[in-house]
Each structure stands twice: as structure tokens, then as C-alpha cells.
């Protein structure tokens, strides 16, 4: 698999088909991190294994904008797991990424592992082994093992009495430091000015108090309704260890229930929960 990815990356860079390949590498202290490879001679840096749990699709919206006015948007290749592909599907549906500017290196996924070698919880719930969309597929897809109830953790919280549920969330959100890492790591949070950061504090002030923090996370969750692909990036980066994906998964669960099993990023239909611009207002110049 690693060799497939490296060979493909080398070929794409040598041909000039892409300017950069986004994959994974091991840093000098042994931590796995996103890698940006520009030269064919550097593809040996790329790796892929159960530690590569970051969602690299996050980097595509940023690269879809020219750095300077008039500059052409470069084509980027990106290593995409099945879960990441769903995020990419959402971005394509919402015209945030141009399909012809992305080369999708799909990987057949054996699931990601925790630091202690146990499978990541989200991977035990996942039945996708091959990305929904790719330009090339690396690796052999393994067979699908039994999939756990997708929303067990959400149901546990839902079952708590209101006071306990409130106490749980107030306790968790109290630790939030408003670093916005959840938002920055989220592939589908891409507003240029976040509602929580407006100069005029229209919706949320700057204070680090529970009402403001809770409101920020609730705004984010609602903006993610029908768009969150449950990739867990928000929770994985939280420096305070807040179980943020529980909030987003609660909404994903409700969306699935109300919208006939709708799961974000599985079809070319954008979420039924946000306004679609049609007719004259349609933004289709970047299809």
C-alpha cells in the first residue's frame, strides 16, 4: 500500500499533473502528521498505516483559493480514506473544491488504531472499506466485519435525565478554551468569518464563559447538520479532551432519523437542511 501511494505520488509529480501531494509522514519524534510533498524525490516521506487518522480533506478548501489574485488554483493530490471521501463529497456538493483541481488517491481502509493499538471507536462503527470517490485506489479492501450500533454513545447521553445531561455538558464545555481547533480541523467548517468571531459580537461575545462556549459549539453543530460526516476530527484535536463529536453525532443521528437515513457525503445531493441556491442565484461557475 505504502509503495503504491509513493509510486503514484512520484508519477503525478513527475508528470506535473499535480503540484503537491498531501499524505502522511512520520515526524522526527515519531508522531504521524500530514505531509505535503512537492518534489518527486521526496515521496519516500509518505507512509500509510493505522495511525493516519487525520482528515486531510480539511486542507483542500484553503488550497482551492489562489494565494494571489489572478493566480491559477494548483491541482493537489490527496490521500483519502473512505470517511474522508465523504467530507470531500460534501465540499464538492457545496462548490468549495473544484473536482478537476483534486486528484483523489483513495486508500482501502483497514481502520485506524488508537495509540495503544486498539481499534478507534469510530472505525468499529464504519462499514466502508473503499472511498466513495477516487481517481486511483491503493491497497486491497479487507472484508467488512460486524458493525456496531452507530449511535450507542449518543443514546447513552440521551437516556440521562435533563439535569444530568445538562450537568454533563456544562462540565465538559467548562474546559473549552475557545482555541477553535475543532472548527479549524473540521473539513466542512470553512466560513471566512466565523459567527463566533465577528467584530461586532453579533451572536457570541469574546468571553471564555460557559454560555458563550456552549453557544459556539451549538452554532457549529447546527451549521454541521446534515453536513457532518462524523470524521471525528473535532474531537481528535481538542486540547481539552472534550467529546465534541458527540454533539455533532447527535444531530447526524436526528438527521438520519428525520430524513430517511440521510448520511452526509454519501450522495451528490447536498444536505436537505440548508438552503440550495438555484436559478439565477446558483453558484455554478466553479463546477
Amino acid at each position: 500500500m505504502i509503495e503504491d501511494i509513493r509510486a503514484l505520488a512520484r508519477e503525478l509529480l513527475e508528470k506535473g499533473a499535480v503540484k503537491c501531494v498531501i499524505g502522511y509522514e512520520v515526524g522526527p519524534t515519531g508522531r504521524v502528521r500530514p505531509a505535503f510533498v512537492y518534489e518527486p524525490g521526496e515521496v519516500e516521506r509518505l507512509i500509510f498505516d493505522g495511525r493516519c487518522d487525520q482528515n486531510l480533506v480539511t486542507y483542500l478548501t484553503r488550497r482551492n483559493k489562489p494565494r494571489k489574485k489572478g493566480e491559477e488554483v494548483p491541482t493537489t493530490a490527496v490521500v483519502v480514506k473512505p470517511c474522508d471521501a465523504r467530507s470531500l463529497r460534501v465540499l464538492l456538493n457545496e462548490h468549495q473544491v473544484q473536482r478537476d483541481k483534486v486528484y483523489i488517491i483513495g486508500v482501502a481502509c483497514h481502520g485506524m488504531q488508537n495509540a495503544d493499538g486498539t481499534p478507534e471507536l469510530r472505525c468499529t462503527r464504519c462499514d466502508q472499506r473503499v472511498p466513495l470517490l477516487y481517481d486511483a485506489l491503493c491497497g486491497e479492501p479487507p472484508e467488512v466485519l460486524a458493525v456496531r450500533d452507530a449511535y450507542e454513545d449518543v443514546q447513552q447521553i440521551e437516556a440521562l435525565p435533563l439535569e444530568e445531561r445538562l450537568a454533563y455538558w456544562l462540565g465538559e464545555l467548562d474546559r473549552c478554551i475557545r482555541c477553535y481547533a475543532c472548527r479549524q480541523a473540521c473539513p466542512t467548517c470553512f466560513c471566512s468569518v466565523c459567527e463566533a468571531e465577528r467584530d461586532d459580537s453579533l451572536w457570541v461575545g469574546i468571553a471564555d464563559r460557559i454560555p458563550e462556549k456552549a453557544f459556539f459549539h451549538i452554532i457549529r453543530a447546527f451549521h454541521q447538520a446534515g453536513r457532518c460526516t462524523e470524521c471525528n476530527a473535532c474531537e481528535a484535536v481538542c486540547p481539552m479532551g472534550i467529546p465534541l463529536s458527540l454533539i455533532n453525532r447527535k444531530i447526524a443521528k436526528d438527521v438520519a432519523q428525520m430524513m430517511g437515513g440521510y448520511r452526509a457525503g454519501e450522495s451528490e445531493e447536498p444536505t436537505p437542511l440548508v438552503t440550495m441556491l438555484t436559478g439565477e442565484e446558483a453558484i455554478d461557475e466553479i463546477h
Binding site: 503537491c20 502528521r33 500530514p34 505531509a35 505535503f36 480539511t58 486542507y59 478554551i177 475557545r178 482555541c179 477553535y180 481547533a181 472548527r183 479549524q184 480541523a185 459580537s201 461575545g205 469574546i206 468571553a207 484535536v237 486540547p239
Partner: peptide, 25 residues
């Protein structure tokens, strides 16, 4: 910068960062 997420973790865990914003509320 390629891999930076532009979050604020590094600043907020830092013992010496001191930047602040001021607002009325």
C-alpha cells in the same frame, strides 16, 4: 504552514503568550 490548521492551541497553552482582545458587552 502547509500543515498548520490556524487554530490557537499553541498560543492558549503557552505560558508567555499574552495577546488580548477588548470588547464591550
Amino acid at each position: 504552514g502547509d500543515r498548520c490548521l490556524s487554530c490557537r492551541i499553541c498560543s492558549y497553552v503557552c505560558p508567555t503568550c499574552r495577546c488580548f482582545d477588548v470588547r464591550d458587552e
